[in-house]
Nucleic acid binder design. Structure first.
Lengths: 209, 209
DNA sequence: CTGTTGTTTGACCAAGCGGTCAAATCCCAC
DNA sequence: GTGGGATTTGACCGCTTGGTCAAACAACAG
C-alpha cells in the first residue's frame, strides 16, 4: 500500500494524480455543491477510474476537506495583506481591489466556499471559528484604530469587512445573475465594478472634514 | 384522479397539503440545494409519505419550480417599491432597509435563491433573463436619472443595485459565517448592519456640494 | 531480468435515489 | 348510509451513489 507508511515521501505519480484530482474536484464541487457532486464525475474529470481516485483519497469527504483547507489560506491572503502602517483609505481600496481580482480570477474557489457556508459550513465550521475569526478580529482592530483616530469615518469594522466580502464575492458567486442582467456579451464589467466600489468606499469612508 | 380536471377548484385537503409540502420543501431545498435535497426528506418534513407527496406534485423538479416562481415576486417586492418620485437618498435607504429586513425575516428564501444562482440557475435561468432583468433595468434607469440630475453621486446604477443585493443578502446567505465571527450569542447584529449600511450608502451616494 | 512496491481496474455490494402502481382507505354530497 | 371520487400507502422498480476487493498491471531498484 502506498499511503500506509506516512513518512515516505510522495512519488511523482502520487503528486500528479493528487493534483489532478483536486483540480477536478474544484470544478465539480464548486458547480454542484458537496452533496450534488459525485465521485464518478470527479474521477472522470480527473481522467481516473473511481476506485483509482479512492486509492489516493479515502473518501469523498476527504477530497472535499483537502480542497477546502488547501484553499483557505489563499482565500484569506488579501485580508492578511492589509497593512496597519499604510494609509487607511489606500489600504482599504487596495484590499477591495485584491478581493475583486480574486472573484475575477478564482470564481470557482469563491463558489466552493459559498456553497459550503450556504449549507451551514458542516464540513469547515471549525476552521471558521478558529483561523477565520482570529484573522478578522485582528484586522477589525486595525480598522477600529483608524476609525478612532479619525483617519476613516466611524464605522463598525466587522460590518465593513462583511460588506467588502459581500460586494466583491458577489461577482463570482452570482456570476450567472450578473451576466444575465448586464448582458451575456459584456465581459468587462469587472472594470466598472472596481470603479463603482472604489468610489462607494472612498466617499463612504472618508472622514468628514 | 384529483388533478386530472384542472378546471375543478382545489379541495381543502389539496390546499393544506400543497402548502405543507412547499413549506417543507423551502426548509430542505434552502439548506441542501436541489441535488442535495431528497423527496423522502421533504415528505418527512411535511408529514407525508413520498408517494403521497408525488400525488400533489408530479416530480421533485416541479416542487422546486413551484417554490421558486411563487417566491420570486415576494423577493423582488422591495425593489419594485423604489419610487421614482421620492427623495433619492431616502428611497435608497428605505430600499436597503427593506432588503435587510428580508434577509432577517426570510433567510431560507434568500438561501434558496442563492443556491440556485450559485449553481448556474439551471432551473430558473429564463425568469432571470426575463422578469428580473426587466425590473432591474427599469429601476436602474431611475437611478441613472437621479445621478444625471445630480441628486445622487454619479455611479453605475447596475453595480449600485448589485452592491445592495450583496451586502444585504450576505446576512442571510452567509449567516453561519457572520455568527461565527461576531459570536454566536450576539443576536442583534442586524441593527448594527442596518446602521453601517445606512451610513456607507448615505456618505457614499450624497452628491458633492 | 526479477522481485517488490506502487498503481490501476472490473466486478461487485448495500444503501439510497426519484418515481410507479394497484390496492386500500377516507371524505363528503346525496 | 352509501356510492364515487379524492386521498393515502406498502411494495416495488431501475438506476445511481459511495465505497470495497482481489486480481492484474506498471515502475523501478538491485
Amino acid at each position: 500500500m502506498a499511503k500506509a507508511n506516512a513518512t515516505r515521501p510522495p512519488t511523482r505519480i502520487q503528486r500528479e494524480k493528487t493534483e489532478a484530482i483536486l483540480a477536478a474536484a474544484l470544478d465539480v464541487f464548486s458547480a454542484q455543491g458537496f452533496r450534488g457532486a459525485t465521485l464518478d464525475e470527479i474521477a472522470r474529470a480527473a481522467q481516473l477510474s473511481k476506485p483509482n481516485l479512492l486509492y489516493y483519497f479515502p473518501s469523498k469527504e476527504a477530497v472535499h476537506h483537502a480542497l477546502l483547507t488547501r484553499l483557505l489560506d489563499t482565500w484569506l491572503d488579501p485580508l492578511r495583506q492589509l497593512d496597519p502602517d499604510g494609509d487607511p483609505l489606500t489600504e482599504l481600496r487596495a484590499y477591495i481591489q485584491r478581493k475583486l481580482e480574486m472573484s475575477r480570477d478564482y470564481p470557482r474557489e469563491s463558489r466552493l466556499f459559498a456553497n459550503e457556508i450556504l449549507q451551514g459550513a458542516p464540513r469547515i465550521g471549525d476552521q471558521i471559528q478558529d483561523t477565520l475569526k482570529q484573522l478578522v478580529d485582528e484586522k477589525a482592530a486595525i480598522l477600529r484604530a483608524w476609525s478612532d483616530a479619525g483617519r476613516i469615518a466611524p464605522v463598525d469594522p466587522h460590518h465593513l469587512i462583511f460588506s467588502i466580502w459581500a460586494t466583491t464575492q458577489h461577482y463570482a458567486d452570482f456570476e450567472v445573475q450578473v451576466r444575465g442582467i448586464l448582458g451575456a456579451s459584456e465581459d468587462g464589467y469587472f472594470h466598472d465594478a472596481a470603479q463603482f466600489l472604489a468610489q462607494l468606499y472612498t466617499s463612504g469612508l472618508t472622514p468628514k472634514g
